[in-house]
Design a protein around this nucleic acid. Sequence first.
DNA 1: GCGTACGATTGAATCGTTTCAAACGATAGG
DNA 2: CCTATCGTTTGAAACGATTCAATCGTACGC
Lengths: 333, 333
Amino acid sequence: MTVSVRDVAAAASVSVGTVSNVLNHPDKVAPATVERVLSAIEELGFVRNDAARQLRAGISRSIGLVVLDVRNPFFTEVARGAEDRAAEEGLTVLLGNSGADSAREAAYLDLFEERRVHGLLITPLDEELARLERLRHRGTPVVLVDRQALPGSFSSVAVDDVAGGFLAARHLLERGRRRIAFVGGPLGIRQVSDRLKGARRAVAKVAGAAIEVFPTESPTVLEGRTAGEVLQARAPAERPDAVFAANDLLATGLLQALILRGKLRIPEDIALIGYDDIDFAASAIVPLSSIRQPAALLGQTAVDLLLREASGRGAKEQVVFRPELVERASTQA
Amino acid sequence: MTVSVRDVAAAASVSVGTVSNVLNHPDKVAPATVERVLSAIEELGFVRNDAARQLRAGISRSIGLVVLDVRNPFFTEVARGAEDRAAEEGLTVLLGNSGADSAREAAYLDLFEERRVHGLLITPLDEELARLERLRHRGTPVVLVDRQALPGSFSSVAVDDVAGGFLAARHLLERGRRRIAFVGGPLGIRQVSDRLKGARRAVAKVAGAAIEVFPTESPTVLEGRTAGEVLQARAPAERPDAVFAANDLLATGLLQALILRGKLRIPEDIALIGYDDIDFAASAIVPLSSIRQPAALLGQTAVDLLLREASGRGAKEQVVFRPELVERASTQA
DNA sequence: GCGTACGATTGAATCGTTTCAAACGATAGG
DNA sequence: CCTATCGTTTGAAACGATTCAATCGTACGC
């Protein structure tokens, strides 16, 4: 049914080797022959079989990327950055979404390894680090994304989440707030716990300041709204005067509940700061203060580290970017 | 270097055929043998080579999906719907982003065909329909997504964009608006031109109503902001009293420019309605009226049609969903 | 004790591409 | 006229999993 190099070779009266050379090293073939083979390809509608190619090559032309949540624009940006950089090298990115579920993460790791990916970029869950170690040991380069690796273990690209959490909380404190709510989860996710750790550090420096944690099941708009319902239902005296949301999706949900349901004024009644500075933060009901991370750059850099590791040159490296405070109306006095 | 079935066979003192059977038809192998092979696999760290598998099988376990813009949450939802449905069938979705560029679209089509995908889901550009026809002719099932196909040509899943445009414009007219601005582009994109067509139809039914078109280069937040700058800079007498944005990203950008730069009140000075009803629409600076489309369902249904076509059973079918008006503050009087 | 039937196992053939050592043919130099 | 050289072309081997017809061994019936 399908047309193979063999058919093309016959049609152009050359050997299969020549057809392959036309495809991969046209400079090694006489121009007239190239012409003849090309028109045979055109005529027969020949399409290279990538599986055979890969089998021969022993490795694919793609790299795997496993993220925690594709619905979060932050990860979409990371993916875009990675894709752009990979495309420059003629590589394809296979995108997997773990949804912070270790079974799904494991499934993607298996899939990608069977596909013999060039390498793996992953925002890992703690439970599966051993598996990653094994993977790397079997020869697949691994780069951790949005998560700092221990020196000597993996290469990684991350943004300092402790510093980001600190920035966010300090900003709220500088605005005179003292009763801070932290909304985020699951707390088992490193990004979340680090941001909380940073916030705690800032709060500890200020006398009379306190932080209360509102854990969520996932960092989504819906969970943010749920947390907001709880907050707005409290008596004013019991209510925090500022909220630090672990990401902008949560902050968006919080906004909805606090304003539309609770009829609270932001920032007068309660200040709010998010994390990631996604596109929508600037155009929320109340423009949202946030902590900006260089998402696309994270993706690009991850691919760079991966290629370096794959080529054998260059040792493992842990790159850490610094987050940045973006002030908007939701925290202005 | 890498471990093959041959190595496993040797380690377990069986033939390669038996190893393969353990992997694919364990019921055909004696339990004790299964056990032995499995522990050899474990011990050697054997990982199946998917390329070899595919080569033999002649087809991959994945389907290709090409969308216009991954940064648009609408398409993210479509992709999620498709992935969920595909996963149930043990299939993987390869995601490609054409960015409304026909060269990139063509590149993905080539890539996916070389990968011998099970089938292709695509939001096509007009220029490349002939190529799709050839692809289908060579044996790859194709389903158009978010675009209605001509009966007899392709299967397709779409939402009636003309109806959606009509709904949006009629809603603005019912709110008493008469000078409608349509912001969207490129106008060569079918979704955009259909929505405009529907809007024109609604406007034509109302005496004294007019529509003015503000074309954009792409349907992004940034372009929306640019269009908003133009609108807000106009003298009040020259300014439209309502805007219909071709999608919610544009609407988001418009909001930013109209409110933050133009100091205009929405909807008092100018009403605004978007399209897609993405998550953020409800939590925009002014909660955004929009036209809702069943995005995830679109993706699921597309996979269903694809599988049906691939199995040979069932003819080509054009499914059309109806869009739905969602009223929020941005158009309330 | 012999033949049969059945479950388990074998291993050569196959998928389609790429590689590379060898063969080929034409040209130039001695 | 022979040989060396250079640019082209050749075709068999290899990649690794799967398939399937053939073989093996055992248990059972007669």
